[in-house]
Simulated scan of single mutants.
Amino acid sequence: MADIDLQIACEAPALPDAAFVERCCSAALDKIGRDGALAVRICEPDEIRQLNRDFRNKDKSTNVLSFPFELPEHIPDELKLELSELGDIVICAAVVADEARAQQKNLNAHWAHMLVHGCLHLCGYDHIDDNEAEQMEALEVQILADLNFANPYETL
């Protein structure tokens, strides 16, 4: 089970509660055989836009960003095995709500997708090339099905 620090940094309606966040993140991590500590921060568009600009050189808001934890190189290997920090996930509540409306998706299902997507990024999954995207999306679909949510990639 994941150790999750949920940070709510916005006033948006219909935000997921800590139990929902833990259930989604734990389902993702359990599926790939990982555990550890992570932070999930739910924020306003200005905050995620600044992070996206500072870390990805994209000056726009986005739905989710993941920041995997990286240990300094000088840490002894024995200690590295004891540390279980995964990293931070930042999700913009307004973007998630707008996307759910525009894509005619259930809001909770979209939140679940963003949480699962963010967790997989923390664990090294990516969608830069077609093969990686196919593998990551298939895993997301399986995890979301385990959580009783529909395939987020099916078109309406």
Rank of each mutant, 00 (worst) to 15 (best):
A145F: 09
A37Q: 14
L79F: 06
G118Q: 05
E78F: 15
A145R: 10
L86I: 02
K80M: 02
N131M: 09
D129Y: 12
V64Q: 11
D30Q: 09
K60E: 14
A100N: 03
D30P: 00
A12L: 09
A12V: 12
Q142A: 15
L144R: 05
E70F: 14
E132Q: 06
L15I: 10
G124D: 04
M1I: 07
E140H: 03
R101E: 14
L6D: 05
N131Q: 10
Q103K: 13
A102E: 11
H110V: 13
H113C: 07
F149G: 02
E22T: 08
N52E: 05
C119R: 00
F149T: 07
I89A: 02
N151L: 03
E44W: 05
D30L: 06
V64A: 09
E137V: 08
A145Q: 11
L156N: 11
M1P: 04
R49A: 02
K31H: 15
A12C: 13
A94S: 12
H74N: 15
V116R: 01
L115R: 00
I75W: 05
C25M: 04
R49F: 05
A94Q: 11
Y153G: 10
Q135M: 04
S66Y: 02
D35R: 05
A18K: 08
I89E: 04
A138I: 10
L156T: 10
C43R: 03
V95A: 07
S61I: 01
M1Q: 07
D146E: 15
H110I: 14
M1S: 07
E11Q: 13
D126H: 10
A109N: 15
